[in-house]
Simulated scan of single mutants.
Amino acid sequence: MSKALTTPAATTDVLHYTAFTTSPAGGNPAGIILDASGLDDAAAIAIAADLGYSESAFLTPGPDPEDSRSFALRFFSPKAEVDFCGHATVATAVALGERLGSGLFHFHTPAGPVPVTVQEDDGALKATLTSVPPRVDEADPADVTEALAALGWAADELDAALPPKIAYAGVRHLVLAAATRERLADLDYDFDHLLALMRRLGLTTVQLVCRESATVFHARDPFPVGGVVEDAATGAAAAAFGAYVRDLGLVAPDAKLTIHQGHDMGRPSLLEVTLRPGEEHIRVSGTAVRI
């Protein structure tokens, strides 16, 4: 499916893909504009707002215009530009893989270079992105208390083994771990309160997680700064979470994590996170399909 959108700058075809799923009914949808050369920022935001997806991807030629697999890649939510978006990156890589073939793509994002490999996996194209260098910072207890108030969560509903942190792998996320799956499933937060806190802290999402096993987690990601209540699959947060569990020493240096997201909002998503010994970058893999 493609949709023609007329803007003051250009007439642009928008591709519609959903990432971290093999079904059009699952995953996190993204609009993809394969040639955004004629669009300014205002036009890009207008397209993203019209689409209503959490983020959409806008491509222009990379630093080497002769390299057909190198692109400048920017992301816009319905409200503003976002430095990095994992699900739109995966969706874009799969869309390009369908047109240019499997292999390596070089994306130059506002957060830094993000190489993505596309390969066929069990009859579907799967993209694996390699994050920018991640980091994990302490979360101010007062900010955590305010976040819990906005969420309507009590401090004793958190998992003490997964302490609150701010994790980064292109954008910042406050990681809060629920002690039970029931707590995670019951999400009804104060949109404006959480929005104000996230703007003050420079957060892209609040990553709410619950641990099922040593390497299997469930996640939900409120995204009010993008004008969206919740993300169905958040690749950037998955990469940041990989750095988080590694920083805490919760997994082996060569761990592979499975993150289930979107189930509570009716768009089941599957994100795979890979850590490699001696390598700081985090890999996030997932499929994507055209809507």
Rank of each mutant, 00 (worst) to 15 (best):
H218L: 14
V251D: 15
P222Y: 13
A4S: 12
V14L: 00
D254A: 15
S68A: 15
A4C: 06
A124I: 02
D64F: 05
P163D: 03
A154M: 04
L194Q: 08
G202T: 04
A93W: 11
A237H: 00
L129K: 07
Y168V: 06
E230F: 12
V171P: 06
K256T: 15
A155H: 10
V209W: 08
D83M: 02
D159A: 13
A179M: 10
P164C: 12
E280K: 06
P268Y: 11
C210I: 12
K126C: 14
F217H: 08
F71E: 00
E279N: 05
S54N: 03
S77V: 12
I282R: 07
R74C: 06
A252N: 01
T258F: 07
A44H: 03
V82P: 05
R183Y: 06
V273C: 09
Y168S: 08
F75G: 03
G266I: 10
D231H: 12
E55H: 04
E55M: 04
P63T: 15
R181P: 00
V90W: 00
E280I: 03
V132D: 14
G123A: 00
A25N: 07
A9R: 10
L59Q: 09
A161I: 08
P141A: 03
Q207F: 06
L151A: 08
A196Y: 01
P24I: 11
N28Y: 00
T130P: 12
L39F: 00
V206K: 01
A255Y: 04
L176E: 13
E272L: 01
D41A: 15
Y53D: 07
A88I: 07
D64E: 13
T60D: 07
D192W: 07
H108E: 15
T92W: 02
L257T: 10
G26M: 07
E212S: 13
A214Y: 12
E98H: 14
S77L: 11
T7C: 03
L275I: 09
D40H: 09
G52Y: 01
Q207L: 09
F191M: 05
V144M: 02
A25Q: 14
F20L: 00
I282E: 10
A147K: 10
L271Y: 08
P277V: 06
T92P: 01
T12Q: 09
P222W: 04
A167L: 07
A95G: 11
L195P: 10
A48H: 03
S37A: 02
A243V: 10
T180P: 07
V136S: 11
H193M: 02
E138V: 03
A72V: 06
P253V: 04
C210Q: 14
H173E: 14
L15M: 04
A93Y: 04
G202S: 13
K3I: 15
P113S: 10
